[in-house]
Amino acid sequence: MPDIAPERPLRADARRNYERILAAAREVFAAHGAGASLEEIARRAGVGSATLHRHFPSRRTLLTAVFHDRVEALCARAREYAEENEPGVALVAWLRDFTAYASASRGLAASLLHDGRDGDPPQRSDDCEMMIAAAAGELLHRAQEAGVVRPGVRAEDLLTLLNAISLATEHHHDDAQASRLLDLTIDGIRVHP
């Protein structure tokens, strides 16, 4: 494998632009969801579209940068649940956290858990999608080993269901609907006597 040159530090003005773009993106994504206008983000950041795309070549790279810390915290909760609870309880608690987070993030799950159709190059190993998949996979594996979750369930299937719940409920005014759909999902993956 060829050596990859380390990234050079950004110049002060480039760093300021990067931070302004991230701050604007947080605001715009919070207000309009993950599908918000990149042009609006650039305008609010006070930079041109080319500057935004130089720092973030695609929507997904921008979303990853914006939501990275929150996804890290969500995955840290998965580890805490695993340490503090029985495997089935840990999995269900994290699924509830993930569903609430995905619903509140308005399209984040769909953007981060898609199949890469936007042409992004492979991400670094700490990519949000990989962190989420690893957290879900570990909790699921422990629950399956404990005999409380059906053995045929796969982490990617579970994340697809959570994504579907997020997408199906993000524009509804019934805040409890996502929780009800998650309850149906949890009941469907459980081992029943």
Rank of each mutant, 00 (worst) to 15 (best):
A78K: 00
N163C: 12
E84Y: 00
A164W: 03
G147C: 09
R54C: 07
L95N: 04
A82H: 10
R96P: 04
I132E: 01
E84W: 01
T185F: 10
L158F: 11
A133E: 11
A104K: 13
H192E: 13
D115T: 12
A100N: 06
H68I: 04
A36L: 04
A50Q: 14
F29C: 01
A25N: 06
D127M: 02
A50L: 09
L62E: 06
V153E: 12
F98I: 00
I4R: 15
R26C: 02
E40L: 15
A100F: 04
A76S: 10
L162R: 01
V153S: 11
A134I: 04
S111G: 15
A93L: 15
T160G: 13
T61S: 13
S166F: 02
P151I: 10
N17T: 10
E39G: 14
L182Q: 07
A30H: 11
N17P: 00
A65F: 05
V148C: 12
P6R: 13
A110V: 01
G48D: 13
L162F: 01
S125R: 09
L182V: 08
D69H: 08
E129N: 08
R26S: 07
A136L: 06
R150S: 11
P2K: 09
A168I: 03
I132C: 03
E72V: 14
A34V: 01
A23T: 14
G116S: 10
R16A: 15
R59T: 10
R124E: 06
E7V: 11
R190T: 01
A31E: 10
R43P: 02
L95S: 09
G48P: 07
D157A: 15
L139R: 07
A133I: 05
Y18P: 04
A178V: 00
M130D: 05
L91E: 02
E156N: 12
D120S: 13
D13C: 03
A110G: 13
P87G: 06
A76E: 14
A34S: 07
R15F: 08
D157E: 15
C75E: 01
L162N: 00
S179Y: 02
A34C: 02
A104S: 15
E83P: 01
A146F: 04
G116Q: 09
T169V: 05
R15Q: 14
A65N: 09
P87T: 04
E80S: 13
V71A: 14
E27P: 00
G188E: 08
M1W: 05
T160P: 02
R106W: 11
A12N: 08
A136C: 13
R16E: 14
